[in-house]
C-alpha cells in the first residue's frame, strides 16, 4: 500500500505538471483539491484519465471522482480494490 501511495504521488506530480512539488510534500491524508495543491476541474479530469490509462479503471461520472480523489489515502484504497491492471 505504501508503495502504491508513493507511486500515485509521483504520477500525479508528473501528469499534472506540479513543478517544485515532491512526493514528500504530499501527505497521505491531505486534501488534493481546494487548498494544498490547488488542483482544479481539469486536473480532476486528468486524474480520471490516469486511472484509466495506468490502472484500467473507467469512471464515467465525474462526480464519482470527488470521493475517490479526496486524498492519496482514498485514491490508493480505490485503486487497490478496482484496478484491472
Amino acid at each position: 500500500m505504501e508503495a502504491l501511495k508513493q507511486e500515485l504521488k509521483e504520477k500525479i506530480i508528473a501528469v499534472l505538471n506540479l513543478e517544485d512539488i515532491t512526493p514528500a510534500d504530499i501527505a497521505n491524508d491531505a486534501p488534493l483539491f481546494g487548498e494544498g495543491l490547488s488542483l482544479d476541474s481539469i486536473d480532476a479530469l486528468e486524474l480520471i484519465v490516469l486511472l484509466d490509462k495506468d490502472y484500467g479503471i473507467k469512471l464515467t461520472d465525474p462526480k464519482e471522482g470527488k470521493a475517490i480523489f479526496q486524498s492519496i489515502d482514498t485514491m490508493a484504497d480505490y485503486v487497490t480494490t478496482h484496478r484491472t491492471k
Binding site: L16, I42, D43, L45, E46, V49, D52, K53
Partner: peptide, 9 residues
C-alpha cells in the same frame, strides 16, 4: 487511446 482534457483545452 487516452485523449487528455488538459491538452485538448
Amino acid at each position: 487511446y487516452f485523449p487528455s482534457p488538459a491538452v485538448f483545452v
